[in-house]
């Protein structure tokens, strides 16, 4: 079984972001970048499938400028077999990402596509669902457990009231939730080895996909900041404040 994993480079989840004063966006230069945490989980799951003898090849793909290759090398160091870098200077919206992935799927013919459930920058949570729609395949979103059984995937999903289990016919598109697994770290020898693994650069134009944006970001604003709070010295004072000042008790 071939597994395709899509990974995205984002601002590090622990970095404090700054909104540009002119409202044009978020400051990205000089920020620490890393692989989107949900994508790391997707890569880890693919590696575990390979270790279990279920996956034969893991292909990782990332879409973006040349810096996307760092993210791909990182995935190769973790255990992916080869990488595809779809090169573009544009920031693609989820629908365009899904169209690119569909095109790559039609060439690679994976049995399983793993993506993170959302990227922590745009917080869209759309790509897996859109890709499944475009390819007319089943979707297993927010997966916290994945079991491959012959021609189907049994997936446990994290839903609002608890958990839900679905059986999906392969090929299927799965999006990963935080509790699917705990990603490993790349060892130094593996990082060195990853430099020799194949990384294929594909100019986005060669895929003949409509990547025109459908949405204009008119302005990016900082959220309203909260007024400074006060510290209280005792439970009595806290209860008194909540009752008489905040009037919430």
């Amino acid at each position: 079984m071939k597994v395709l994993v899509a990974v995205k480079r984002v601002i590090d989840p622990y970095a404090k972001i700054r909104v540009n004063a002119d409202g044009s966006g978020v400051e990205t230069s000089n920020m620490k970048m890393s692989m989107n945490p949900f994508c790391e989980i997707a890569v880890e799951e693919a590696i575990r499938l390979k270790e279990a003898g279920l996956a034969t090849e893991i292909v990782v793909i990332s879409i973006g400028d040349s810096t996307a290759q760092e993210t791909l090398r990182n995935a190769l160091a973790l255990g992916a077999d080869r990488a595809i870098h779809v090169e573009t200077e544009s920031m693609l919206e989820p629908l365009a990402v899904a169209k690119v992935l569909k095109q790559v799927m039609s060439q690679e013919l994976p049995q399983l596509v793993l993506v993170g459930k959302q990227s922590i920058d745009t917080d869209n949570n759309q790509v897996a669902q859109m890709l499944a729609a475009l390819t007319d395949r089943p979707q297993g979103t927010f997966a916290s457990k994945l079991v491959i059984e012959g021609e189907s995937a049994l997936i446990t999903r994290e839903v609002d009231g608890g958990l839900e289990t679905l059986s999906l016919q392969l090929p299927a598109i799965i999006s990963t939730d935080l509790r699917l697994n705990e990603p490993r770290y790349a060892s130094l020898p593996n990082i060195m080895r990853a430099k020799k693994k194949p990384l294929h650069v594909v100019p986005i134009e060669s895929l003949a996909v409509d990547i025109e944006s459908r949405q204009q970001v008119l302005e990016v604003m900082a959220p309203k900041s909260r007024a400074a709070g006060q510290s209280v010295a005792s439970v009595d004072e806290l209860v008194d404040k909540l009752r008489n000042e905040a009037k919430v008790l």
């Binding site: 601002i11 404090k16 972001i17 909104v19 978020v26 922590i120 920058d121 745009t122 917080d123 459908r214 949405q215 204009q216 970001v217 008119l218 302005e219 990016v220 604003m221 900082a222 959220p223």
Partner: peptide, 16 residues
């Protein structure tokens, strides 16, 4: 809509 874990808000116009 919020982006970056709610640390920024985006005003977005759809052309669809």
């Amino acid at each position: 809509r919020p982006i970056y874990a709610g640390n920024a808000l985006a005003r977005v116009k759809s052309d669809d």
